[in-house]
Amino acid sequence: MSRIAIVGVGTMGEAVLAGLVNSGATVLAGVRRTERGAELAERYAVTAGAPAEVAAGADVVVLGVKPYDIVPVVASLDLQPGQLVVSLAAGVTTAAIEAAVPAGVKVVRVMPNTPSLIGQGMSVVAGGSSASDADVEQVAELMRAVGSAVVVPEKHVDAAAAISGSGPAYVFYVAEALVEAGVHLGLPRAAASELVTQTLVGSALLMRETGEHPAVLREQVTSPGGTTAAALRVLESGAVRAAFLDATRANAQRSRELSEG
């Protein structure tokens, strides 16, 4: 199995590290602070060291640093032809990274999301011009250690990330609104939170397990002239569906602006 170095082990980097360790991969942690390296070594039984040191001995180098650090960090690693670089940063194109590495270094871009922290993530994977289909599939398989992964052309990354990358924020926004609605209806906050949480979990699992279109599942809950129909009528009159369309368009546009910047 490939030796994988993770450079920049913050929240998302650590999630990927934990998933890969659990899958049996050989993982190296690239950190700037020795105390952070000691913490990761104790928690996951991985080898930790300076970023350039661990990257030098790796087949795959995963970059978990902030977007504004990607290019300077990758340029400092002294990468060699044949190594595979995986970026977890939003708004940084594969072309920008390829320009900072030697010829022959392969680059793949990944947009994970925060449920990766509990092994239930959704990752969008896109290869750069130097990466083969096999390289891209290898990265997708790595990301399946923390959930699911889908491969798309890079031109679709902004759109896909607007759905899955930022998607948890939309879900939490809806959850927050439903909890507040329950409180306004007289429910204790703890009870409202439990009702909302399990309803979201159960509904997501039902959609995944049945494979039904969400419109079909919605119709199964909605009796003509009933209470659900009354509630949905209010949501439609509030243009909630259109608001989600506008929100995801704004998300994708902002991602394109960051890439161009």
Rank of each mutant, 00 (worst) to 15 (best):
A149E: 01
P72D: 08
D133Q: 13
V201Y: 08
L185W: 08
E209I: 01
T26Y: 00
Q220K: 15
L235Y: 13
V196R: 04
Q198A: 06
S259C: 12
I118H: 05
G238C: 09
L178R: 09
V86S: 09
S116Q: 06
T210W: 04
V92S: 12
S166Q: 02
V101K: 07
L187H: 04
Q198G: 14
V171A: 13
T248Y: 06
T93V: 02
G202R: 03
T11L: 09
V71C: 11
I118S: 09
T199A: 15
E53P: 11
S129H: 11
A5S: 12
T34E: 15
S237T: 11
Y44K: 09
L88I: 06
D158V: 03
L232D: 02
I6C: 10
A252E: 07
G128D: 04
S87T: 15
S193F: 07
H213Y: 02
A149F: 00
G202A: 06
A96F: 00
A18D: 11
L205R: 14
V21F: 00
E219P: 10
E180S: 12
E35D: 15
A169R: 08
G186Y: 05
V139I: 01
R256V: 11
A38N: 13
S148K: 15
I118P: 06
A239H: 14
A38K: 13
L205E: 15
A29Y: 06
A29H: 08
S203F: 02
V125L: 03
D133C: 00
A169W: 00
N22G: 14
E39A: 14
V110W: 02
R249K: 11
S164T: 15
G226F: 02
S223M: 08
S116E: 05
V65C: 10
A149Y: 01
V60C: 02
V151W: 01
L142F: 00
R43N: 04
V62F: 04
Y68Q: 15
V124K: 03
V201C: 05
A15H: 04
G147N: 05
